[in-house]
Design a binder for these strands. Structure first.
Lengths: 214, 214, 214, 214
DNA sequence: GATGAATGAGTGTTCATTCAT
DNA sequence: CATGAATGAACACTCATTCAT
């Protein structure tokens, strides 16, 4: 068990968040965070998460990256499109991250635990912020945009459903369990602060795992 | 034991949601839903839940009860105050409802299950709508208003914490378990539709109970 | 002939522009020019005519009647709706005016001349300004609004077509002649200034009549 | 005389619109339509005519010729200057065209008819589009630009006035008749579609001629 | 000459809130 | 208490124009 953990850590350490992002940027799946568009998306993710989509103005957003509000519309056609793009890129990054976490997980139980921890890290880590937006601001998206995001989201959810199914969780079919987990995990954004002393993300992951896969 | 349960059930059946509301109105804890103020609060609960607080205008609200937007400010000093009042009244009603559900629950396990079902009913039933607002629109509230609502909320949460503690749920301390439950249950608003054939509220309560208190 | 003219003038003098407007307001066909909405429509007619629709801002319009730009949207749902309403009211007034002019015209020739003079007066008089907008800003209207205005316009054009037909104008079918007249008359807005010494409206009407019905 | 006319006609038939443009380009009076500036002017003429000046953006214009909006300002100092240049070139071309049409006209009546047909062709033909802009967008021009265009326009109008005077049209002095004609003819842009079966340009010219010079 | 990013003043519009009637 | 008109600040978005590269 300890050895396994060590191996995992090493495998993981081969690909830091920055390196993962870099690889995705090269493949053209993510916007370069250094480009104006990328800086805008990062700032948007941060602000939409902190203040909410409708309470964030395009002026806030522009100020955050040091341009004027009008200039935003060189890169995006509307405020809503920014939200949509943020969600798509966040989903792509979270998928890649979770796939990478999956690879180093051996048993079905470990896989589910890795899923939980990966999503909690996505929610609370700052590497590519904005994961909690996916749940919290879903209704701010037009139906057309929702479909676009769902297309990207499918793969991510498939990993989850597989993990839940193979881990033989209680609570009936995997879809219901996953939805309960979505709620439980995304809501942690509102109360769980990993920086303060107290629960750490791995500890919280353990708790959640204990509940959903005893 | 069976007899007692029967008596309780009868007692409960004597108190329909409308009767419960009536009793609370008489005690001055709830606004009369027939009064202008009450109709406004009900309409607000419905609209804030359906469209979100910031996407609901005071004009929408006024139109819903058949007055003009200016007239709203004879009853409330601001839009935010309406949200605050809705939340307080919803909390009061949900508390009364859950206390009543508690009374007919015998074992600790039954008590927790009653809590779960009561909250799911609060979220998905229409009697006093707006329960999901408590979680979803929490950030739309000023800090001052949050404190006001928290004052009311305390009692409600205490019932939950007792139920979790006595049911000996896994997942560590009751506060964490409750918060995971808050997320899991409130998020059902987004995907669970009790009207369509499929899962019913009692069935869903069972699933949740199975997971959180195996 | 002279007597007839005298009688005509008397008949006409019974209904001044202001009185005609008053009658139409009473019938509910025109907005009261004293009401906020009416003052807005009059100002819009003036400004759209002077500066063009797209060069007139809602702020210009608001300033003209002494309110703030936001207040306009209490009375109209959009800038385009203002243009549409202006056009409809202008058409209604012009129709009533022309009908009234028709009544005092005896021969077919006189009827056509009355049409010409009535339209020239509509273009250059100030009583209900905005007639030239009907031609000049037609393309600023959405198709839906165009249909609305055309509904009102039909009656007005019918009077014209009858007059052209009975006057036996050269130039083939009445529809073509009318369209040439529309262009010729509406363009006078750009070059004909009745106030300066020179041509008067009756004189210009004579010239046009001479050309189109020799 | 007849021989001369024949020669002229042949000469005319030798000079297609493209050839006429070519000749004017060589003389330095028109911009080469193949040059970037020329393509810009042609696109502008088309767009300003179709959508109106203020509803056409420089981005539309740039897209039409396949460059970016910023690049336009290497060729013109402002959007208004583009309109001004379009008007000047259109006027030059229309003048040359009408002069050429005059040469083959024998009688005063024929001359006037040739003027009418030439202007209708200018409005509805596609060779050098934009003639209708001269009337429809006149007010979009600054006074300084108006003067510039008027300088070019003078010769064109002189031909018209001569033709009207010698044809002994009714309706008083030639200036007024010409202005009525300007309105009547330019407005045909809005209703006359030569492509559809029905009236042809020569037929419409006949009708107009019949009215203005019976 | 072209690009692409940015500007900055301005656009139509929204909306919670006020207040005389 | 309700109305209806108005407020005024804020909003997302537009667009002609500039300019370093």
């Amino acid at each position: 068990m300890q050895e396994a953990a060590q191996v995992l850590e090493e495998a993981q350490s081969e690909l830091s968040p920055q390196q993962l992002i870099g690889a995705l940027v090269k493949k053209g799946e993510l916007t370069d965070p250094g480009s104006p568009r990328g800086r805008l998306l990062n700032a948007a993710a941060r602000l939409f998460e902190q203040k909410g989509f409708s309470r964030t103005t395009v002026r806030d957003l522009a100020a955050e990256v040091g341009i004027l509000s009008g200039s935003i519309f060189h890169h995006f056609s509307s405020k809503e499109q920014i939200l949509c793009e943020v969600m798509k890129e966040v989903t792509i990054f979270a998928s890649a991250r979770m796939r990478s976490a999956m690879e180093s997980a051996g048993s079905p139980q470990e896989r589910l635990r890795a899923c939980i921890q990966s999503e909690l890290e996505a929610i609370h880590e700052q590497a590519v912020p904005g994961f909690s937006i996916l749940v919290m601001e879903w209704r701010s998206l037009s139906e057309a945009s929702q479909k676009e995001v769902l297309l990207q989201r499918d793969e991510y959810e498939q990993i989850w459903l597989d993990a839940i199914n193979t881990a033989q969780c209680p609570g009936g079919d995997a879809a219901v369990v996953r939805r309960l987990l979505v709620g439980a995990l995304s809501h942690t954004y509102s109360w769980f602060k990993p920086r303060e002393k107290g629960l750490t993300i791995p500890e919280l992951s353990d708790r959640v795992f204990q509940i959903f896969a005893p």
